[in-house]
Structure formats: structure tokens, C-alpha cells
Amino acid sequence: MLEKFADKFRLDDQTMALRVANEFSDGDVVNLGIGTPTLASNLIPTDKEVLFHSENGVLGYGQICTAGEGSHDLVNAGGQPVEYKPGMCLLEHSESFAVVRGGWLDYTVLGGMQVAENGDFANWMVPKKKVGTIGGAMDLAMCSKNVIVLMNHMTNKGVFKIVKEVSYPFTGHQCVDMVITDIAVIAVTDEGMVLKEVAPTWTPEEVQECTEPKLIIPPDVKDVQLA
């Protein structure tokens, strides 16, 4: 984050996950990436039937279990035990990715390193490291109906993560539809990036300062919508 905004309020991981959970409707099939996105499976209202898919071969799992509970034979992609849920089914790995590649996922939520204004996306390797984990990210980013990236708006050192052009190795081209950060919600459209929501106390102009490409700022920018 920029030095001048270092003391400003920012959404924590749980709140960012709650914001993304608010996108899903009854019947949606959703894959949650490792890290902050996985928290969203715990934040769905009990009367909403969202089918969570995990790459390791489960469709329709429940919440992440309390520490010490659950089974290591029923885990999400992050290896966390999750709850058994009626209607849940299991898939071997190529079937699990047939679900991904076949376009059966309504939403994929992934962590990110860089998102460009045209929706280009990088999330698997810092170039100087020469090794990174692709995992399921390329399949998920390129083949899901909607791709939401959940990440901090800038690096800790205040470097742009929402950029004009991606400079890290690509995960996918023009695939991101929405970015939810610790200070804003941004839609990626054919016209460019549209600022939809800001975190409490933030102005659209301040969010723009933290964003490399020029944002389209409509008159009706809202506070972050959590319900």
C-alpha cells in the first residue's frame, strides 16, 4: 500500500471473502482458490444452495471444519477438512477438470499477482523465482464463466497489482471479470475497468491513486456490499 494510505482502514481477508460470497446465487457452481477465497464456503447464508467445487475431486461440499474436526479424506484444494453435505459427490481428477474445462463453473475465485485493465491475469510465478505452482489456475481462469480475483489492491511495498499490462508470466488472457480488493470492487468491461464499490472511508480518487490504469468512475459508486 502507498505510504500515505498506510494507516487507512482496509478490508480483512474474512470481509473480502464475505464480499465475494455475496456474488453467488442458488444453483451456482463455484470453485474457490487456495487461501482467502476458500473462506467464502463458510460465509454463504444457510438457505442458499451454492455448489462448491474443489479441484481435488469434490462437488457440493460444506463449510471448512473447525480445527481438529473433520476427515483428511474430505478436504478442499487447500487441504483443509470440509464438511460432508447432502447431495455432495466425488470425482476422480480428470472428471474434476472436465467440470472445469467444460465450462460448468459459474464462478472461479482466485488469488492474484497482477490483473491488467483488459482482464489479462498473472498469479503463478514471480519471474525471478523461475519456479511456481500453476496448479489448477490456468484451467480455472481460462474456462470458467466468471473469474473473480480476490487480492490486496497493492503489494506491501506499494507496487501496483492492477496494471496497464501484465509483466509476470501469464495465467490467462482477457479472462478476469471482477477484482475484489481490500479497498475496492472493480468490474472488467470491454470499455475498461469500472469502479463499482469502495471500502469505508475511501474515495474513488484515492482508489485511483492505487491503480495504474485509468478507472471509469460512474456517479453511483457504492460502499462495499456485504449482503
Binding site: 481428477h93 480428470s94 477438470f97 519456479v131 489448477g136 489456475a137 484451467d139
Partner: peptide, 15 residues
């Protein structure tokens, strides 16, 4: 040596 493969591609190459 290492060959990095997207997970779905790996599964389908094995299948």
C-alpha cells in the same frame, strides 16, 4: 529437470 504442467492438462494426459 522439471516440467511444469497445468493440473487439468496433467490429469487428461494421464487419462
Amino acid at each position: 529437470e522439471m516440467e511444469m504442467v497445468p493440473q487439468g492438462t496433467m490429469a487428461e494426459r494421464i487419462r
